[in-house]
């Protein structure tokens, strides 16, 4: 008996070996840099050189700076427009493809096409759209103008990425253009995981397709919608590449599209405004916000699991 137990322990010791490479690399490349940033967030380090520990001053500054809050609001606002479009479109598509009456075909092809924009690097997407959407000379406005001309109407060109009224929405729409395919795939996976027997049983009971949708599909798809929305929020709070590469810093639209991550970049990596200590504090405040969202997420799903 005793011998066997020690043998199990011996087996279990293999766990250390299996996990060791991960732990070593993880400590070096993940934990150390994060701790280093934490340390820096309590200093007044600007660019390089010596820095003094200044306690929570940086944090106080983050929380009292209205531009930080504007950046947070911009981020959330862009995210909301994005998620409504993205999830709404995905939801409609899911309805169409899961409809028991129409039995639409071609899902395999459509979902690949819808997913396509998601795999392209943001650098390429940003260059592509900032060229296409140029106010005066971009192909988008030129096409719209020629359509207007066709009807003899006059088109007042919209400054898609240069005006603060539209820039945020433009970014949001591009963002949802990139991501709706992803959401659609997830919702569809949810629908397909529903046992077909439910549908058949319901059909035999004479339930109409709207009843089936409302009583079976919807309740089962709800948690997935929540999951998509919340993971998207966590990602959305870190939004950076698209607005950063598309909106010029001297543009009047900048203030309305600056995201938290761009705010961080301004103080972390931009010449003339580099204040590494402060940027580190911004990073941690953002982290705490994301943590809160994640905890709420876990709560929600734990709750679901208990039911």
């Amino acid at each position: 008996m005793k011998k066997k137990k020690s043998k199990v322990t011996a087996y279990n010791n293999w766990g250390y070996a299996f996990v060791a490479p991960f732990v070593i690399v993880f400590c070096i490349f993940s934990i150390y840099p994060v701790l280093r940033t934490l340390y820096l967030s309590f200093t007044n380090l600007k660019v390089v050189g010596n820095a003094d520990i200044i306690g929570f001053k940086n944090y106080a500054r983050v929380l009292t700076d209205k531009f930080f809050w504007t950046a947070l609001w911009n981020t959330v606002r862009i995210w909301i427009v994005n998620i409504v479009l993205q999830l709404g479109l995905a939801f409609l598509l899911m309805m169409v493809f899961s409809d028991v009456k129409y039995k639409m075909r071609g899902l395999a092809v459509f979902r690949i096409i819808y997913y396509l924009p998601n795999i392209i690097a943001a650098t390429s997407i940003a260059f592509l759209f900032s060229t296409l959407l140029d106010w005066r000379y971009g192909t988008f406005n030129i096409i719209i103008k020629s359509i207007y001309d066709l009807f003899g109407a006059k088109y007042n060109p919209v400054n898609w990425i240069g005006s603060s009224a539209t820039a945020g929405y433009t970014v949001a729409v591009i963002q949802s253009w990139m991501w709706f395919g992803n959401s659609f795939l997830m919702l569809m996976a949810g629908v397909q995981s529903i046992n077909r027997d439910y549908f058949e049983a319901a059909a035999i009971d004479g339930a109409g397709r709207w009843t089936i949708f409302g009583k079976i599909t919807l309740p089962l798809i709800k948690p997935i919608m929540m999951y998509v929305a919340i993971t998207s929020l966590i990602g959305g709070l870190q939004m950076f590449d698209l607005p950063f590469l598309m909106i010029e810093t001297a543009s009047s639209a900048y203030g309305s599209v600056q995201t938290v991550m761009m705010y961080l970049y301004k103080f972390g990596f931009t010449t003339g405004t580099t204040q590494v200590g402060y940027a580190s504090a911004v990073a941690y405040v953002l982290f705490l916000i994301i943590l809160t969202v994640s905890v709420v997420e876990l709560r929600l799903f734990r709750g679901k699991g208990d039911k």
Binding site: I31, Y32, I234, Q238, Y265, A283, L286
Partner: peptide
Amino acid sequence: VVFGAILAFMMIPGQLSLIGFYQL
């Protein structure tokens, strides 16, 4: 502990470690 750390780091924005990472 390792699993807990994994869960925690899944929520950490990448740029949080950028400065420290480069110094390293």
